Computed example of a mutant assay.
Amino acid sequence: MEGLLKLKRRHFNALVSSLCALAAAGSLGSALAQAPANAAAPVILVVGDSLSAEYGLKRGTGWVALMAASVAKEKVKARVVNASISGDTTSGGRSRIAALLAQHKPKWVVIELGGNDALRGLPLNMTRDNLATMTSLSREAGAQVLLLGMEMPPNYGAKYAQEFREVFTTVAKAEKTELVPFFLKGVADTTDPTALFQNDRIHPNERAQPTMRDNVWPELRKLIARR
């Protein structure tokens, strides 16, 4: 991950087992709808992992909750549903997406998955196929999609880091959907990236959440404006 130059690989590997445990236990983090002012408003569905599920954060302080506040403040006719699960992979997202689309009938879908695939050493072609399928199913259901790109640190190998980065650009191009190239821009690529991370040095802390929101909301706002 280009932006995680100063984070050690052991910090990633140390968390894999705990993320797996969370997923197996069904830890939903923040898999709840943000309280809507208008229950009939079109839905923004966020499907992500611990980065979006408020892992280690006080409820209501994560970037998804902050984005929901921006939606309300700017009087955008939409409501946010956070269907993120700590420890989730693209395979998990793929298995859940059809039911989520049927239940919430979203007009916009934000997909923030893939990081845990890399941490577990899953094949990149599988990650790419899962993201493409989730995007395709969302578009077929009438939703516009915003894909959030992730990166791996170069100590995973420059070739692997590049190929992982290209998974997101390839899917976005093939599926003709929008992309935030690096979801953690301004968080993991700072002079002292650890300052914006929790003690595990993997999960962004509360101070980082507004930046994460600002990486997503302007791009999503453009999609909403088009509609």
Rank of each mutant, 00 (worst) to 15 (best):
M1R: 06
M1F: 07
E2C: 04
G3I: 09
L5K: 14
L5W: 00
K6S: 04
R9Y: 00
A14Y: 11
L19P: 01
L22G: 10
L22C: 06
A24M: 08
A25H: 13
A25L: 14
A25G: 12
Q34Y: 05
A35D: 11
P36F: 04
A37F: 06
A39V: 11
A40Y: 00
S50M: 07
S52W: 00
G56P: 08
K58I: 11
R59A: 15
W63K: 06
M67C: 13
V71R: 05
V71T: 04
A72N: 09
K73I: 03
K75N: 13
K77H: 12
K77E: 12
A78W: 03
A78I: 11
R79L: 09
V80M: 09
V80T: 00
A83T: 01
G92D: 13
G93Q: 08
R94T: 05
S95C: 04
S95Y: 07
R96C: 09
K107T: 09
I111D: 03
L113N: 06
G114I: 00
G115Y: 06
L119Y: 07
R120C: 04
G121H: 10
P123L: 14
P123S: 12
L124M: 12
N125Q: 14
R128V: 00
D129I: 07
L131T: 05
L131D: 02
T133I: 07
T135H: 06
T135R: 04
L137W: 03
L137G: 00
R139H: 05
R139C: 11
A141Y: 01
Q144T: 11
Q144Y: 01
V145F: 01
V145Y: 00
V145E: 01
M150T: 09
M150F: 08
E151F: 04
P154W: 13
Y156V: 05
Q162S: 12
E163A: 15
F164Y: 15
R165K: 13
E166R: 15
V167Y: 08
F168R: 10
V171A: 02
V171F: 08
K173P: 02
E175Q: 15
K176S: 14
P181M: 12
F183K: 04
G186V: 11
T191K: 13
P193S: 11
A195K: 13
L196K: 14
D200I: 03
D200M: 04
H203R: 05
A208S: 07
T211K: 14
M212K: 08
N215R: 10
E219D: 04
K222W: 05
K222D: 08
L223E: 10
L223A: 07
